[in-house]
Design a protein around this nucleic acid. Structure first.
Lengths: 194, 194
DNA sequence: GTCTATAATCGGATAGAC
DNA sequence: GTCTATCCGATTATAGAC
């Protein structure tokens, strides 16, 4: 918007939405405050009015993604059904959260660990993975999942598949309906025709 | 090695091995020439004796990964068996190449497209994906793979799973034997007990 | 809440000696 | 083939006006 006088002033949230888009396009390290100011249509120093700096923008964004993901685990662990059903719930809901919080989760999954904020994010991701691996292990013990693949390895490959959604999914694009269904089908029953 | 006088002089290849390790730890954008010189134990200007700059190091590294991946497709497309067998060959060999060329493929998979070199790498990755999707489509047409998941979507999820190996695999670590086998089993037959 | 101007530092790259 | 010294543009962040 070219006319500053009619544009609604930024809030931290609306600034964050713009920021995350740029971080995902250019990478966090590859994004300068100049890039952000251009994308937001305000000056660099105006950004510093809302946040302490670039790293705080990263922390707020990945925090939003992490909160959404941990909420899924809290739901699943409160359920009473067989382990395999709870695991399926986590798989489906994680895929759905990836889609609904796409830019925030995308950023989270690309974090490498250069700064304190990035290391904090990696740590919380590891906690998430461990809790999922426990669910999967319980389903194997119950005889509901095949026992010939090590649970930790299966968890990693399973979430590798789910997380890869952020690499290509674009809302509204053709042929992206039923992504969560496809994930659940492939994960539990595989590609082969029966 | 602290003693410069006894260390073998770098070649482009040996310098590349060091470089790729740092790029993967800190990210390409997050790595400075200063970081590289410290890791290699030589000065910044000595690096410029071997390569034209930072971007050339990236090009050499991802080029090595791409060459290894395209060699797999050339093999598979030359085979004469049923499509599903050729696809399984590609899946297994891709997982194996990920393991054998781990740092180079890791770097390739993290490229985002900020520079000309990065865009060239993304383009070649798209070519690879399309050729795999064709193989998978042929296997669906032959009735060897389930028809209720769109081939492009299945390809993406399949390679999402395979590529995610670079996120956690460390050579020699416990519980990482039979990774390629696990990938093939999960991809074609799924997690569920039979 | 946003601006212009600028401080302070970092990072890629080069010159020229050994 | 490697070094020290340095150039200079880019980048994060701040000061102070409106």
């Amino acid at each position: 918007m070219a006319d500053n006088s009619t544009r609604t002033a930024y809030t931290v949230d609306s600034l964050l939405a713009v920021t995350v888009g740029v971080f995902n396009e250019r990478g966090y390290d590859g994004t300068s405050m100049e890039d952000l100011s251009r994308a937001a249509g305000i000056s660099k120093s105006s950004i510093y009015h809302h946040v302490r700096g670039k790293e705080e923008l990263l922390r707020l964004a990945v925090g939003r993604a992490l909160d959404a993901l941990f909420a899924i685990l809290d739901e699943a662990e409160a359920e009473t059904g067989p382990p395999v059903d709870r695991l399926e719930h986590v798989v489906r809901r994680t895929a759905e959260v990836l889609l609904s919080e796409l830019p925030y989760v995308t950023l989270l999954l690309r974090v490498r660990g250069n700064t304190a904020t990035e290391q904090w994010a990696l740590e919380r991701r590891r906690d998430f993975d461990h809790r999922v691996a426990e669910l999967l292990r319980a389903a194997v013990t119950a005889g509901e999942l095949r026992a010939d693949v090590e649970p930790r390895l299966a968890t990693r490959l399973l979430f590798g598949m789910i997380n890869s959604i952020v690499e290509w999914y674009r809302p509204g694009a053709k042929g992206t309906d039923g992504v969560a269904d496809a994930v659940v089908h492939l994960a539990f029953d595989g590609l082969r025709a029966r």
